[in-house]
């Protein structure tokens, strides 16, 4: 369903993606792990056309994202839902206007129907009675859940999660993990999650792939990754400061 074919992406002298290849099958929940600054967000932004590769191609349903025109890309984007690391709620709109934003723009539904459907989506993520609140009134965990409700509003086929548990306390992180699993099961979506939270990765993934030096260096089920002998992956999943992965400014 999603395919990265020899994708290269650089920012000035920083070669972030260096020939990345990755396949995601329909219905699969893949989690891409990797350290900070390794290009995980860049990878995710290529899937939905927020960035285009310098070389190589990203295919979604056999369509090369970078070769699509604006109308075609927008049609394809209606199949997607994306949860941002910062939630990225529109702070000038109420909660229900955020959730119903795409419905209002891309369907002929009346305002009252949009509000009703938005409430339903909010209920799916466990939020009731906050429809008329402004995003600034919500806690970090609630904002993430509103962001998730907005992502699923158009019944997407593909859900993208950018660091879904980052910045949340352990209980709220667990709530988000459970919701991601629930969305995958109930909506039967394909999901791509990027995270460095291994607890979350083991819980929500069918497949875990590790991004390092601009390429996927390892891929497997959570169990396979947990038992890997690859020293780079081991260092990362065990969270050790010493090992083959160098940390800028730290002498090993």
């Amino acid at each position: 369903m999603i395919e990265f074919r020899d994708v290269h992406k650089s920012f000035e002298d920083n070669n972030v993606l260096q020939g990345l290849n990755l396949n995601v099958d329909k219905g699969e929940s893949i989690v891409v792990i990797g350290g900070s600054g390794t290009g995980k967000s860049v990878l995710l932004k290529h899937v939905i056309g927020l960035m285009n590769p310098d070389n190589g191609a990203v295919y979604v349903d056999s369509n090369s994202i970078s070769e699509m025109n604006e109308d075609g890309l927008n049609q394809l984007r209606k199949k997607f839902g994306m949860l941002f690391q910062s939630s990225a709620l529109f702070d000038s709109m109420t909660v229900w206007e955020n959730v119903g934003f795409a419905l209002k723009r891309h369907t002929s539904m009346s305002e009252s129907d949009v509000k009703e459907l938005s409430s339903e989506k909010l209920k799916m993520v466990g939020l009731v009675g906050i429809e008329d609140d402004m995003p600034a009134q919500l806690s970090g965990g609630m904002r993430k859940r509103v962001g998730l409700a907005r992502a699923i509003a158009m019944n997407p086929e593909i859900l993208l999660y950018d660091e879904p548990t980052t910045g949340l306390d352990p209980i709220n992180a667990e709530v988000i993990n459970d919701l991601i699993i629930k969305m995958n099961e109930e909506l039967n979506v394909t999901s791509v999650t990027i995270t460095h939270d291994m607890k979350s990765a083991y819980k929500i993934a069918d497949t875990i792939a590790m991004l390092y030096n601009g390429v996927i260096i390892s891929r497997g089920t959570p169990e396979e990754i947990r038992n890997t002998t690859d020293p780079v992956v081991r260092q990362f999943i065990e969270g050790k400061a010493s090992g083959p992965i160098s940390v800028e400014g730290i002498d090993k």
């Binding site: 932004k45 939905i48 056309g49 927020l50 604006e70 927008n74 049609q75 984007r77 209606k78 997607f80 839902g81 994306m82 941002f84 690391q85 910062s86 990225a88 709620l89 529109f90 702070d91 934003f101 795409a102 723009r105 891309h106 907005r150 993208l160």
Partner: peptide, 14 residues
């Protein structure tokens, strides 16, 4: 900087 413009694009809005 709060990714709201990216969010608009992902919601198929120019």
């Amino acid at each position: 900087v709060t990714e709201q413009i990216d969010a608009l694009e992902t919601l198929a809005v120019n």
